[in-house]
Design a protein around this nucleic acid. Structure first.
Lengths: 116, 116
DNA sequence: CGGTATCCTATGTGATACTG
DNA sequence: CAGTATCACATAGGATACCG
């Protein structure tokens, strides 16, 4: 067998753990969009649905619950005549924004490459 | 009905398109890990499998094909006695690294919060 | 070594209908 | 308005076996 190991054999192992740590939060359909929609301030359930056009109530609800449990956002119910619920990023959730921003930036570059 | 619209009604809509643009590339199980593993240089199939422990050959193969088709990486077969295949990030693929790096950084912060 | 083919299961996602 | 319940479906992912 060839013992001529390639020079990148000793490349430092990546940090899959840390990748997964964050990917677990921004994975799941629409999760990034939900977080992104909340970046500029609190939003209500129907506002989020409007922000993220083809999302079903069920999925949005599921996603919001998950993100709430992960302490990415908070849920605040207002007992008004037409009931309204306000979702807001926590400081922890806000920490995801730079990563999402980087993703958006790359999205632009990818699209530019494809077009140009 | 309450016409007192909330002040964030006019918050600029997010850029779900650009989010999806990049998320489409880094989504799929292990895709980010594959790209991350290639950041320091080319890797072979079995090296990638070793880098990303619980990945099955099929899924790795699938992911690599997808990423190749998206021009994120290139595949180079070496017709050596034990055949070897080298995967390497394209410049386009390299553009994803800042976003992945941001994700890793957030991963660290998330973990720190959880521990601290 | 570097895959592919087949099968199977879990999960995520969506439509619809209904409730407080 | 803000959800939940139920069902039904597509697909992603994994195990195993096999091939060049």
């Amino acid at each position: 067998m060839s013992l001529k190991m390639r020079k990148n054999q000793s490349v430092a192992p990546p940090e899959p753990c840390m990748l997964s740590e964050c990917m677990a939060v921004i994975s799941g359909a629409w999760a990034p969009n939900v977080i992104w929609s909340l970046r500029a301030g609190p939003r209500r359930f129907s506002e989020l649905r409007a922000d993220i056009p083809p999302i079903s109530a069920k999925v949005l609800s599921t996603r919001l619950s998950e993100l709430e449990q992960k302490a990415v956002l908070t849920r605040h119910v207002r007992r008004t005549s037409p009931p309204s619920t306000e979702y807001r990023l926590t400081p922890l959730g806000a920490e995801l924004l730079p990563a999402l921003d980087a993703i958006v930036q790359v999205g632009h570059r990818l699209k530019a490459k494809r077009s140009g």
